[in-house]
Simulated assay, not measured.
Amino acid sequence: MPQFIEDDTFGMYFEEFEHTAWRLETRRGYGSDRAGDKYRRYLETGEVPDDSQRPWCVNVRAQTERGKRIERVRIVDNPPTHEQRFLLAAAAVNNAVGENIRSLWRTDAEKAALPATDFWLFDSRRALVLHFDDADGYLGAELVEDAERIVRFCQVRDTAWHHAIQREEFVAQVSSIV
């Protein structure tokens, strides 16, 4: 069983990184999204509210204004699940405050042999591997500092980023399959 960090220390990684914070998201949905009001409103209206003043966005803005990068690649099914459509819509706010969220079709991720592992990579030195149960519920984050595993995460990052598509272009592709 992996050794999880204390949940109350999770946020400090996003304040203390020096250059880059990068994430791979591989799941078809997240229990925390499905449980939230924002997701329910999206299902009812098809719209995502501007919540650019929430703590995550405030920190992203502060970090990127210091010249740091916060990026992620989301793996998306074809057709996208409701949760993936929600995340694609919600990414507009994140991108507007300085985060760079891109998407990659699952078939392309599989061709590139990307793992089905969600993780954050910080400064190419440490990672938080996110663990979930079968219902997409968050179980905890495992701190990884082993050089061999970090090199593999860096390779995954480079491959995923190379193949990922910017949000606006991806939205157009999704719209064309509906």
Rank of each mutant, 00 (worst) to 15 (best):
L24Y: 03
H163S: 11
T20W: 03
A89G: 03
F14Y: 01
A160S: 00
R41N: 15
V129E: 10
P115S: 05
E169T: 10
Y39K: 07
A112Y: 07
A116N: 13
A116Y: 13
R74G: 02
R157M: 10
L130S: 12
D51N: 12
Y39C: 02
D33L: 12
D134M: 11
P55K: 11
T117A: 13
A147T: 00
T45Y: 03
A89F: 04
T107F: 13
E47F: 04
D33S: 12
D118E: 10
R61V: 01
Q53I: 03
V58G: 04
D158N: 14
N59E: 11
S176N: 08
W105C: 08
Q84C: 08
C57S: 14
S103P: 04
L128Q: 02
I70W: 01
H163M: 11
R106A: 13
T45F: 01
I177A: 09
Y13G: 04
N100V: 15
A147S: 14
F122E: 02
F14E: 05
G98L: 03
D158C: 00
R74Q: 09
D77M: 10
F132K: 10
R102W: 01
Q155T: 12
F119T: 06
R34A: 14
E99I: 04
W120Y: 13
E83K: 06
Y39A: 09
R125Q: 15
S124H: 08
A62D: 14
F119K: 11
L130K: 06
D7A: 14
R157H: 02
F170C: 02
D118M: 03
L87E: 10
T26Y: 08
E168C: 06
R152D: 15
W161Y: 06
L24K: 04
V129Y: 06
V48C: 01
V60K: 00
P79M: 04
E71R: 11
R102P: 04
Q166P: 15
N95D: 09
S32T: 14
R28N: 15
A21F: 03
A116G: 09
P55D: 10
F86W: 08
V156Q: 04
C57M: 09
K68E: 02
V144S: 04
E71T: 11
E168F: 03
A127S: 11
L143F: 04
F132N: 09
I165E: 13
S52F: 00
E15M: 12
R125A: 13
I177V: 13
H19N: 15
V151M: 14
D133Q: 07
L114C: 04
V76A: 06
E25T: 05
V174K: 00
F170P: 03
A96E: 14
V73F: 00
S175C: 10
I165R: 00
D33V: 12
D118W: 00
D77R: 04
T159H: 08
Q155V: 10
D136H: 08
Q3N: 13
Q84K: 01
G11R: 12
Y42S: 01
R167L: 12
A92I: 08
T9W: 08
M12V: 14
N100F: 00
E65L: 10
G11Y: 02
Y39L: 06
L130C: 14
Y30C: 01
Q53V: 07
D133C: 07
F119H: 11
E15H: 12
L143D: 05
D108Q: 12
E142K: 09
L88C: 07
E25R: 11
F132Y: 15
D51Q: 11
L139V: 00
T117G: 03
G29R: 05
